[in-house]
Design a protein around this nucleic acid. Sequence first.
RNA 1: GGUCCUGUGGCCGAGUGGCUAGGCAGAGCUCUGCAAAAGCUUCUACACCAGUUCGAAUCUGGUCGGGACCUCCA
Length: 500
Amino acid sequence: MISLKVYNSLTRNKETFKPLVDGYVGMYVCGPTVSGESHLGHARPYITFDVVYRYLTHLGLKVRYVRNITDAGHFEEEGRVAEDKIATKAVLEKLEPMELVQKYTNLFHWAMLQFNNIPPNIEPTATGHIVEQITMIEKIIADGFAYVVNGSVYFDVNKYHQVFSKKGLPYGILSGRNLEEQLDTTRDLDNQDEKKNKADFALWKKAPPEHIMRWNSPWGKGFPGWHIECSAMATKYLGTQFDIHGGGMDLQFPHHECEIAQSSVCNHIAPVRYWMHNNMITINGRKMGKSYNNVIKLTELFDGTHPLLAQAYHPMTIRFFILQSHYRSTLDFSNEALQASEKALKRLWEAYENLQKISVENNIATDTALDEKINKQIAEFTTFIEDDFNTAKVLANMFEIVPVINAIKNKQLPVNTISSKTIALLQQQFKLFIEDILGLQHQAAHQEKLAGILQLLIDLRKEAKAKKDFVVSDKIRNELAALGILLKDEKDGSVSWSFT
RNA sequence: GGUCCUGUGGCCGAGUGGCUAGGCAGAGCUCUGCAAAAGCUUCUACACCAGUUCGAAUCUGGUCGGGACCUCCA
């Protein structure tokens, strides 16, 4: 029996999670558009849903986690004919579109690895599923919910709304919008004229001659519309209805709303049971996004090259920073906040390492009140994570336990203050939550420090050699060798080192 | 114009009717050759106004501020 509660954007309620098929979970998360580098904002959904994936897996569920790669940019730019984002940039950078796509896909994968995100089980690409998308569009046309104009195909939102409202699936069910109330942003665009109604959205777009990415279709050469890829790939790999669909809140409308419409027409069933949306990362209170020109790229974050950054931040610091807030709240970025996270994570990690070193004997607690309190706090790890993944509260509880761990380690508290049973439980639960569920990992940032330490030893050895104190110089070299570090006196007088 | 979210102490950020959030920063103490670390103690809060209530940061109404979406966007 699962007692996990998740907030469902569709019902705007926390609901007890119940998989469609006992023991299995289908989860689809909107992946990146690989037309550029990922920024801090992008880190959030993938870390958030990584924790979701990890926790569901921990519950013993067999999760199929699908996260797409959008490698066919397709959107409209104001005042111009439809054009392909990726193709445009490719020209600027003098790259093949697929070369560009590969470059940013690789970079994305690298960043995900840095964050210790577990790769999805299936990572389908939009360009690899053109056939499925065309098939889906054909079905929608056959059912009368889409129309062809001049080589493009549009979804008939009004008709959908009329027919599917009766089935409890009005257009706007997810985002809570009324078609009539929307701001009229229609401008004098060629392709806007093609639409019967301004709310209609493209399923397939005719490719203008300069458009590099193009595929044959029953309607001529073109490329898929904005929203169809996710519907096609989710259906293919997770079935006509699946458990969880995740993504950023900014995708709720129109992207996810359109997915519901397309899939409902095609498969005669609403596609998703639980819609989960993470909130935005803001900077000076404003959403981080390309259009606001306020993004901090992940590479800039990791090496500290952005003007707003006082230093480089380790990916684990970013992960921790994100997990310290609830995923449905906005999270405001600042240098100060990241520095706080860096220190906090260090404190947590050191306590965790100290904890694992405490040897468990067979004590009975001398302070039963404290012992009980800690047991309660451990139990709450589960309570909190099951309350819509409240990672902030899980971490807060851990920090409440940290002083006790440190005090025992420093012998400021005797080890038998709390029972050995409690210590063993602590060791096990800290490991489970910190490493397995929150996915925090030991920082590899020590590498730089190690280099500094070795340089110091090399300098000390050099001084000893200069004084012909070979006892000391040999001691340094030999003991380092015993530790697996080889010092090499180069011909030019410099000293290098390597691991043996 | 519509839909929705939000306003917590120096900073970040939990919390949704009574009970310590937590982290970072600040102060004091203990420990300490010095420093650091660590432990203990501690100061700054719940935008404003009104209402409901025995009791509100938490519910209701209003005011003001910030934001998201309605266009690609995590």
